[in-house]
Amino acid sequence: MEICPACGFQFGVSDDDEGHTYDSWREAWVKMGTPWSTKQKKPAKWDALALLETLTPAKKRAPKRKR
């Protein structure tokens, strides 16, 4: 049920209610230039693309998430 402060995906809502997948949301977010998508404070040295590069295929399919 948490909202990712970076990409704005809300677990349990963006997927279960609105029908988005992690992959489709991530792809759209990257295409938009990985904007910081919430009103929570962005970390000073936050680098979205560097973080995305650390994702393994397994993590991309089923990342750990809080609900």
Binding site: M1, E2, Q10, G12, V13, D16, D17, E18, R67
Partner: peptide
């Protein structure tokens, strides 16, 4: 609504239809 174990709120919204409950 979704709550933490101590009763504090995580989120509160209105899903598109009642079948959302069956998918939880």
């Amino acid at each position: 609504a979704a709550y933490n174990l101590n009763g504090t709120t995580k989120t509160y919204f209105r899903p598109r239809d009642a079948s959302y409950w069956e998918r939880q």
